[in-house]
Simulated scan of single mutants.
Amino acid sequence: MVVSIINGRRREIGLDEGLDAAIEAYYNATQKIYLTHPLYFKVMFKANRIIIFLAILGGYYTLDNPSFKEVKKLCINNELLSTNALDSFISFLQVGGRLAITRDGQDKRKLTYQPTAKGVNEVRELINSLLLTYSMIYPGVDLAQRVDHSDFMADFFKNYTQVIVKEMFVYDAVPDSRAFLTKDGGHMMMFHLYVESLRQRTLAVQYNYLKASAAFSVSRSHIKRCFQAAERLDLLYLKQDGKTIELKPRFIDMVREAFCFYLATVEYGVLGAR
Rank of each mutant, 00 (worst) to 15 (best):
residue 226 C to S: 12
residue 191 F to P: 03
residue 1 M to P: 05
residue 114 Q to T: 13
residue 187 H to R: 04
residue 185 G to P: 06
residue 9 R to K: 12
residue 268 Y to W: 05
residue 212 A to V: 02
residue 265 T to P: 04
residue 168 M to C: 11
residue 90 I to N: 01
residue 197 S to I: 04
residue 242 G to N: 02
residue 154 A to P: 00
residue 5 I to K: 10
residue 247 L to S: 04
residue 273 A to H: 05
residue 119 G to Q: 10
residue 141 V to A: 12
residue 46 K to G: 02
residue 72 K to L: 15
residue 274 R to Q: 07
residue 6 I to S: 04
residue 60 Y to K: 09
residue 82 S to H: 03
residue 36 T to R: 15
residue 218 V to K: 06
residue 197 S to T: 01
residue 122 E to L: 09
residue 49 R to M: 07
residue 24 E to H: 09
residue 12 E to D: 14
residue 64 D to V: 09
residue 11 R to P: 00
residue 46 K to V: 13
residue 69 K to W: 08
residue 95 V to P: 01
residue 230 A to S: 10
residue 213 S to I: 04
residue 37 H to D: 15
residue 103 R to F: 00
residue 198 L to H: 03
residue 24 E to P: 04
residue 85 A to Q: 14
residue 118 K to N: 06
residue 58 G to E: 02
residue 131 L to G: 08
residue 28 N to V: 13
residue 25 A to E: 07
residue 240 Q to T: 05
residue 211 K to Y: 02
residue 41 F to I: 04
residue 272 G to P: 03
residue 222 H to Q: 11
residue 65 N to H: 12
residue 196 E to F: 02
residue 170 V to A: 14
residue 63 L to D: 05
residue 208 N to D: 15
residue 154 A to I: 08
residue 133 T to Q: 07
residue 42 K to E: 06
residue 256 R to I: 14
residue 199 R to V: 02
residue 66 P to I: 13
residue 199 R to Q: 12
residue 150 S to G: 01
residue 179 A to W: 06
residue 155 D to Q: 13
residue 36 T to H: 13
residue 31 Q to L: 15
residue 161 T to D: 02
residue 182 T to Y: 12
residue 46 K to T: 14
residue 78 N to G: 08
residue 153 M to Q: 09
residue 147 V to F: 10
residue 150 S to L: 12
residue 19 L to N: 10
residue 58 G to C: 12
residue 241 D to Q: 02
residue 204 A to G: 01
residue 99 L to T: 03
residue 32 K to V: 15
residue 264 A to F: 07
residue 140 G to K: 12
residue 211 K to R: 06
residue 177 S to V: 13
residue 152 F to H: 11
residue 190 M to L: 14
residue 165 V to Y: 11
residue 142 D to N: 15
residue 180 F to H: 08
residue 117 A to L: 07
residue 162 Q to R: 15
residue 91 S to L: 12
